[in-house]
């Protein structure tokens, strides 16, 4: 790439006056990025290299942000699964608990009923002793 030194210095003058067009500034950028610029223009080279560098900086956190969202996506799924499984297990557990409780209650009521029945039976048996006495007396008389 051949650049005339006079031409470049003229462009730089215009540049400082704010009179260069975007196209001319492009030429300057190209000239200074070629690494064969005249050492006389070193300070300008710094400036143009900086502009080049600066125009390429990106907002870094976008990439990491994407990674984060993809990992948090899986974490979300894992958390959802945990909650769902936990809920299922708890529901199951609660239901068996409830069944056990009902069964125990039924058992207790049955036991109470049977107790009542047996105590009534015992009462009845006591009364039956009179019949026994009556029968022995009757046997004595009839024999």
């Amino acid at each position: 790439m051949e650049f005339n030194k006079d031409y470049i210095s003229e462009l730089l003058n215009l540049y400082e006056e704010g009179e260069t067009s975007l196209k001319q500034e492009q030429e300057l950028k190209l000239y200074f990025s070629s690494e064969v610029y005249d050492k006389e223009f070193e300070p300008y080279a710094k400036l143009f290299k900086f502009f080049e560098l600066e125009s390429k900086t990106e907002m870094e956190d976008q990439v990491t942000g994407n990674e984060k969202t993809s990992s948090s996506f899986w974490i979300n799924i894992a958390a959802t699964l945990c909650i769902a499984l936990g809920g299922l297990w708890f529901y199951d557990h609660y239901q068996t608990q409830q069944e056990m409780k009902e069964a125990r209650q039924a058992f207790e009521t049955t036991q109470n009923a049977l107790n009542l029945l047996s105590s009534n039976m015992n009462d009845g048996l006591e009364k039956l002793e009179y019949v026994e006495v009556f029968r022995t007396q009757k046997n004595k008389l009839i024999k």
Binding site: Y15, E16, E17, G18, E19, P43, Y44, K46, L47
Partner: peptide
Amino acid sequence: VALSRARKKIMNEL
């Protein structure tokens, strides 16, 4: 004008 002032100032310092 602002552009030219800014550029001149930076170049002076550089």
